[in-house]
Amino acid sequence: MYFDNKVIWITGASSGIGKALALALSQYDCKLILSARRTEILEDVKTQCKNTEHVAVLPFDLADYEKMEPVSLKAINSFGHVDILINNGGISQRSLIMDTDISVYKTLMDVDYLGTIALSKALLPHFVKRKSGHFVTVTSLMGKFSSPYRSGYCGAKHALHGFFDALRLEHENDHIKVTLICPGFVNTQVARNAITGDGSLQQTQDASTENGLHVDVFAKRMLKAITKEKFEAYIGKKEVLGIYIKRFFPRMIHNVVSKSKVR
Rank of each mutant, 00 (worst) to 15 (best):
Y2V: 11
F3C: 11
N5L: 13
I8E: 01
I8K: 00
A13V: 13
A13N: 13
G16K: 11
G18Q: 01
A20K: 07
A22N: 15
L23W: 02
Q27R: 14
D29M: 09
I33V: 13
L34C: 12
S35L: 11
A36I: 11
R38C: 09
R38F: 10
I41H: 13
E43L: 14
D44C: 00
T52K: 13
T52P: 06
L58F: 04
L58S: 06
L62N: 01
D64I: 03
E66N: 11
E69G: 00
V71F: 01
S72C: 09
L73A: 13
F79P: 05
G80P: 01
H81R: 15
I86D: 08
I91C: 04
I91R: 02
L96M: 10
M98R: 10
T100L: 00
V104I: 02
L108P: 03
L108M: 14
D110C: 10
S120R: 04
S120W: 03
A122C: 07
L123F: 01
K129M: 12
R130I: 11
S132W: 02
H134Q: 09
F135D: 04
F135G: 05
T139K: 05
L141N: 06
K144W: 02
P148R: 05
P148Q: 05
P148E: 03
R150A: 08
G152T: 08
G152A: 09
C154G: 06
A156W: 03
G162R: 09
F163N: 01
F164K: 03
F164N: 03
D165G: 06
L167G: 09
I176A: 12
L180W: 09
C182Q: 12
P183D: 09
N193S: 07
A194G: 07
I195E: 08
G197P: 11
D198M: 07
S200D: 04
S200V: 01
Q202M: 10
S208F: 06
S208E: 08
S208H: 05
T209S: 02
E210M: 11
E210P: 03
H214G: 12
D216I: 03
V217K: 14
R221S: 09
L223W: 13
L223E: 07
A225M: 08
G236Y: 10
K237F: 04
E239T: 04
E239F: 03
L241N: 13
I243P: 00
I243L: 10
R251C: 02
I253E: 00
V256W: 06
K261L: 07
V262N: 06
V262H: 07
